[in-house]
Design a protein around this nucleic acid. Structure first.
Lengths: 140, 140
DNA sequence: CGCCGATCGTCTGCTGTCAAACGATCTGGC
DNA sequence: GCCAGATCGTTTGACAGCAGACGATCGGCG
């Protein structure tokens, strides 16, 4: 049974595979380090940044499926971190609004971000991280 | 409903999210462009490179769960692309071996790789792709 | 006004992935 | 030789993600 350490060779020649495996490794580490849930964290962060939004806009901007967004919003509402007011201008849509409790939860979650970014990207210097971020930005 | 184009800002500040979203976009494009299936393709490629392997070794090196590898190997065997001989030195394990038909299928699949790599990483120059590959290699 | 297509939130079913458990087999200590 | 623990392949169950369908509502057009 040859333990030939084949993976590095594969990763060097197939950037798509390297990207996919690196992503799942990082995602697993990040999800484990977040008690809020990554999706909920991002929703709170966006609401705090741009104000009340419909679930549709949240889903599109955060690249989350809108049927998944339903569950995320349910959890946040149940926890008291957001309110779901109806948008008076379009009664189909909600105006999802962050509450003071939601801002506190966001601040708490945001405090842990640099820590788990360090564990996930620990092998990279700050300059390399910036390079990676720039390259990924071009891809999207 | 503010369509604030929030995502780029998020991606710039959270490399983990950028990595995850870029990965799923690339993965979807690659999976769609591969008629063999990405997992099966990688298994054939590794078998051709290092010779017969147990499913366990294949799973570990390719970062695929071994219970998923069962299905991949089933499909490849049914298509006649691999044989599952028992390893005489360890009768628990298979010696998964690529067949001539498997080599032909691999060659055919390998022909399409540069094409879909171009569509998936089209926004990046060759130098940028090399940079990305190097950075991902450090992460793994 | 009345109708038709589009959109928002939700629900349902399907697919792919993973953890855990199992039988068969190997390995090491007695 | 024999037994306990580990390993290989497989199956099962749980769970997240996504496509598609649905009711409610909006917008436009006659």
């Amino acid at each position: 049974m040859p333990r030939n350490d084949y993976f590095p060779r594969l990763a060097a020649e197939r950037p798509d595979i390297a990207l996919c495996r690196a992503s799942s490794a990082v995602a697993k580490a990040v999800e484990a380090a977040s008690d809020l849930g990554v999706g909920a964290h991002l929703v709170l962060k966006m609401l705090a940044a741009v104000g009340p939004c419909s679930q549709q806009v949240l889903a599109e901007e955060l690249r989350i499926d809108r049927s998944v967004m339903v569950g995320v919003a349910d959890g946040l509402e149940r926890a008291g971190h957001v309110r779901r007011d109806r948008d008076p201008a379009d009664r189909r849509a909600y105006a999802v609004t962050i509450t003071p409790a939601g801002r506190r939860a966001l601040a708490r979650a945001e405090k842990g971000v640099p820590s788990f970014l360090d564990t996930a990207f620990g092998g990279l210097t700050a300059a390399e991280r910036a390079q990676l971020t720039a390259l990924l930005g071009k891809l999207l």
